[in-house]
Amino acid sequence: MNELHFSVKASQSAKRQALDVIKQIQASNSIPIERVQMRLRIGIPKSKEIKQVRENVIKLVSSVEEDSWSNSLGYELICLIDPGQYKPINELLQAECKGQAEVTVLSISDSREEESSFI
């Protein structure tokens, strides 16, 4: 915080100040900080608009792990998303699929494990 010339202000909430300093740290690249990704399974039932709904959902995900089509079931996607995208994806699916889509959180953890070596 000293390197960023960030000073604590008694008149602001601790949460607001923590969010501000985290943004500054990310912008300066002095310490690499990333949000943990959520792993989701998204099921979209068979419909006329399924391809358009799929394209809109794909725009909101970070990476696709599995992408499969089924003639009887529709479409299933397993993906990683930024946690901030969960609500927009869920609202999109509820609006477009009229409550028929399924969103399941598979995990909320860091999928990358870094190896550390001690000398």
Results as ranks from 00 to 15, higher is better:
residue 40 L to F: 04
residue 116 S to E: 09
residue 1 M to F: 07
residue 72 S to F: 08
residue 56 N to A: 12
residue 113 E to C: 06
residue 114 E to P: 00
residue 18 A to W: 09
residue 72 S to N: 11
residue 25 I to P: 05
residue 88 P to S: 13
residue 30 S to K: 12
residue 49 E to A: 05
residue 32 P to C: 03
residue 8 V to R: 07
residue 33 I to V: 15
residue 99 G to S: 06
residue 50 I to K: 02
residue 116 S to K: 09
residue 29 N to P: 01
residue 45 P to E: 14
residue 104 T to I: 15
residue 23 K to H: 13
residue 37 Q to E: 08
residue 105 V to W: 02
residue 94 Q to P: 01
residue 71 N to R: 12
residue 5 H to A: 14
residue 24 Q to I: 14
residue 32 P to M: 04
residue 61 V to R: 06
residue 61 V to H: 06
residue 10 A to C: 06
residue 65 E to Y: 03
residue 72 S to W: 07
residue 53 V to E: 05
residue 66 E to G: 02
residue 52 Q to P: 00
residue 5 H to D: 15
residue 79 C to N: 10
residue 86 Y to R: 05
residue 8 V to C: 02
residue 58 I to S: 02
residue 24 Q to D: 13
residue 74 G to L: 04
residue 56 N to G: 03
residue 26 Q to I: 15
residue 75 Y to K: 04
residue 20 D to L: 12
residue 58 I to Y: 10
residue 64 V to F: 00
residue 85 Q to A: 13
residue 85 Q to I: 00
residue 9 K to Y: 05
residue 64 V to M: 07
residue 61 V to L: 11
residue 5 H to M: 13
residue 51 K to G: 02
residue 34 E to C: 10
residue 40 L to N: 05
residue 24 Q to C: 08
residue 89 I to Q: 09
residue 49 E to G: 01
residue 93 L to M: 05
residue 39 R to Q: 15
residue 82 D to S: 12
residue 67 D to W: 07
residue 4 L to S: 07
residue 11 S to K: 09
residue 73 L to C: 02
residue 100 Q to R: 11
residue 97 C to K: 00
residue 108 I to E: 12
residue 20 D to P: 00
residue 43 G to M: 05
residue 100 Q to W: 04
residue 37 Q to Y: 02
residue 17 Q to S: 01
residue 104 T to N: 11
residue 58 I to F: 11
residue 18 A to T: 15
residue 10 A to H: 09
residue 103 V to E: 12
residue 44 I to R: 02
residue 4 L to F: 11
residue 78 I to A: 06
residue 93 L to A: 05
residue 100 Q to T: 09
residue 6 F to A: 03
residue 3 E to L: 09
residue 94 Q to L: 11
residue 78 I to N: 09
residue 102 E to C: 06
residue 93 L to G: 05
residue 30 S to C: 02
residue 86 Y to A: 05
residue 117 S to L: 06
residue 43 G to D: 07
residue 71 N to W: 09
residue 34 E to Q: 13
residue 63 S to H: 12
residue 99 G to R: 04
residue 48 K to D: 14
residue 89 I to E: 10
residue 98 K to A: 12
residue 26 Q to G: 06
residue 54 R to P: 00
residue 83 P to H: 13
residue 38 M to K: 11
residue 68 S to G: 09
residue 114 E to T: 05
residue 7 S to P: 02
residue 10 A to I: 15
residue 112 R to T: 01
residue 117 S to Y: 06
residue 66 E to N: 14
residue 98 K to Y: 15
residue 46 K to W: 13
residue 75 Y to A: 03
residue 114 E to K: 03
residue 90 N to S: 11
residue 13 S to E: 08
residue 63 S to N: 14
residue 47 S to W: 08
residue 43 G to H: 10
residue 46 K to D: 14
residue 90 N to E: 14
residue 98 K to P: 04
residue 3 E to A: 09
residue 22 I to H: 01
residue 106 L to S: 01
residue 54 R to M: 00
residue 85 Q to H: 08
residue 96 E to R: 10
residue 47 S to I: 13
residue 58 I to D: 03
residue 5 H to G: 13
residue 34 E to F: 13
residue 115 E to H: 01
residue 74 G to T: 11
residue 62 S to K: 12
residue 36 V to P: 04
residue 19 L to R: 02
residue 30 S to G: 07
residue 41 R to F: 11
residue 19 L to W: 01
residue 11 S to C: 02
